[in-house]
Simulated scan of single mutants.
Amino acid sequence: MIKVKVIRTKVGKGAAGLFAAFRGPDKVLVGFPAGEADSDVIERAVYNNFGTSRGIPERPFMQNAMRNNRRDYQAMMKAEARNIVLGAVRGQDASRTKVNALKRLGIKAQGDIQAEITSLDTPPNAPSTIRQKGSSNPLIDTGEMRNSVSYKIED
């Protein structure tokens, strides 16, 4: 008769590590989060993005950036979720892994919005605005609005 002894070796934290993956921050705000940009920059961004009844046309740079890169964000979130779960099961700090994933997503979306601000050219500026600014780029005057785009990780 042969006796077989099964020895199980636990690697990482198993299910406990998996549950830890669900703690901590769970969203990233991108654009002009409150407290991250000056109120005058936020106001300018809102007027330019949505337009005004005073003649500023809608230039939806934020929506364009999100819509044009949606598949990239979905693929990135899927890959990051897999990394978070696998890391948690292996005993890695799931909270830190999740924060790092949100940072990477925030940096990508921030860059996409900034790129859209740079490349958006319709509707064009009025000739008087071009004369005043010395530029035909509708969303860039000093570059302050583009440089103020940021991200913030929240619970």
Rank of each mutant, 00 (worst) to 15 (best):
A79G: 01
M62Q: 04
M77T: 10
K103V: 08
Q132Y: 12
P57G: 00
A45R: 03
A65E: 01
S128R: 03
K108A: 10
R131L: 14
N68F: 11
V46N: 14
R104K: 11
A65V: 08
N125T: 07
S53A: 03
K78L: 14
R54Q: 13
M66P: 04
D72M: 07
Q92R: 07
Q110L: 06
K108F: 15
E80F: 15
R90P: 00
A109P: 10
N83L: 11
I84V: 11
P60V: 10
N69M: 03
A101W: 05
R96L: 07
I56S: 08
A79D: 13
A79T: 04
I107L: 10
M66D: 08
Q74I: 13
T97V: 09
N64K: 13
R54H: 14
D72V: 12
S53G: 06
G55E: 10
I84T: 00
G106S: 12
M77P: 02
G55K: 10
A45P: 05
K98G: 00
R90Q: 11
Y73I: 09
A45I: 01
E58S: 01
N48S: 09
R96P: 01
G51H: 10
M77E: 14
P60A: 15
N68I: 04
A79I: 01
V46A: 15
F61V: 09
K98C: 00
Q74D: 14
M76E: 12
F50R: 06
R54M: 13
R54V: 06
F61T: 06
D93V: 02
N68D: 15
L86V: 10
L120V: 12
Q114A: 05
A94W: 01
A115S: 15
Q114R: 07
A101E: 06
P123W: 15
T122C: 04
N100A: 07
S95F: 06
N83W: 00
Q110W: 06
R82Q: 13
A109Y: 02
Q63W: 13
E80Q: 09
Q114F: 03
G87T: 03
M77L: 12
N69R: 03
A81P: 02
R82T: 12
R96E: 07
E58T: 06
Q132D: 11
E58W: 01
G134V: 14
A94N: 11
I117Q: 02
N125A: 01
P124H: 05
N125D: 10
L86D: 11
S119T: 14
E80R: 04
Q63N: 09
N49A: 02
G51D: 13
D112L: 05
R54S: 15
D93M: 10
